[in-house]
Computed example of a mutant assay.
Amino acid sequence: MKKIVALVTLAILIFSCSNKKQGNMLVQGQIKGLKKGTLYLQKMNDTVLVSIDSVKLLGDDTFLLSDNVKDPVMYYLTFDGNTTEKRIMFFGEEGTITINDKIEQFGFNPEVTGSKNQDIIKEFKKIDARFKNQRLDFIKQDFEARKVNDEDKIKQLEDDYKRMMRKRFLFTAQFAKNNADTEAAPYLALTELFDANVRLLDTINNSLTPKVKASDYGKRLQKFINEVKANETK
Rank of each mutant, 00 (worst) to 15 (best):
residue 135 R to F: 12
residue 200 L to E: 15
residue 111 E to M: 03
residue 53 D to F: 06
residue 207 S to K: 07
residue 212 V to S: 03
residue 188 L to D: 05
residue 113 T to V: 11
residue 135 R to E: 14
residue 154 I to A: 07
residue 71 D to F: 01
residue 95 G to T: 06
residue 41 L to D: 05
residue 40 Y to G: 08
residue 145 A to E: 05
residue 233 T to Y: 09
residue 192 E to H: 06
residue 170 L to A: 08
residue 140 K to I: 08
residue 122 K to M: 06
residue 114 G to M: 03
residue 185 A to I: 06
residue 137 D to I: 12
residue 214 A to N: 14
residue 149 N to Q: 15
residue 95 G to Q: 04
residue 107 G to D: 00
residue 228 V to T: 07
residue 63 F to D: 10
residue 71 D to C: 01
residue 16 S to E: 04
residue 93 E to Y: 02
residue 229 K to A: 01
residue 150 D to I: 08
residue 4 I to S: 04
residue 98 T to H: 04
residue 161 Y to F: 14
residue 56 K to F: 07
residue 48 V to I: 10
residue 229 K to E: 15
residue 187 Y to G: 01
residue 24 N to H: 09
residue 87 R to N: 04
residue 117 N to R: 02
residue 83 T to K: 15
residue 96 T to Y: 04
residue 175 F to S: 05
residue 50 V to T: 11
residue 214 A to W: 07
residue 187 Y to H: 11
residue 81 G to Y: 02
residue 228 V to A: 06
residue 46 D to N: 12
residue 23 G to R: 05
residue 9 T to D: 08
residue 184 A to W: 00
residue 218 G to S: 03
residue 159 D to T: 15
residue 187 Y to T: 04
residue 181 D to W: 00
residue 25 M to A: 13
residue 39 L to P: 00
residue 211 K to A: 15
residue 130 R to T: 10
residue 15 F to Y: 12
residue 194 F to P: 00
residue 129 A to C: 05
residue 3 K to N: 14
residue 75 Y to I: 00
residue 36 K to V: 01
residue 195 D to T: 08
residue 54 S to I: 05
residue 195 D to F: 02
residue 79 F to H: 14
residue 87 R to D: 00
residue 234 K to M: 12
residue 133 N to M: 10
residue 221 L to K: 12
residue 229 K to P: 09
residue 5 V to M: 11
residue 116 K to N: 10
residue 190 L to S: 11
residue 193 L to D: 10
residue 68 N to W: 05
residue 68 N to T: 12
residue 160 D to F: 04
residue 121 I to P: 07
residue 113 T to L: 03
residue 190 L to G: 12
residue 129 A to W: 00
residue 222 Q to R: 04
residue 92 G to N: 03
residue 57 L to I: 04
residue 228 V to E: 02
residue 37 G to T: 09
residue 178 N to L: 06
residue 165 M to V: 12
residue 106 F to P: 11
residue 78 T to W: 03
residue 57 L to T: 05
residue 6 A to V: 11
residue 188 L to H: 09
residue 132 K to E: 14
residue 196 A to G: 03
residue 11 A to T: 09
residue 19 N to H: 10
residue 121 I to M: 13
residue 199 R to W: 06
residue 205 N to E: 13
residue 183 E to D: 13
residue 190 L to C: 05
residue 121 I to F: 05
residue 127 I to L: 12
residue 190 L to P: 11
residue 10 L to W: 05
residue 49 L to D: 03
residue 153 K to T: 08
residue 86 K to R: 14
residue 133 N to C: 01
residue 131 F to P: 03
residue 155 K to I: 06
residue 184 A to T: 15
residue 216 D to R: 03
residue 107 G to V: 00
residue 87 R to M: 05
residue 58 L to Y: 09
residue 175 F to L: 13
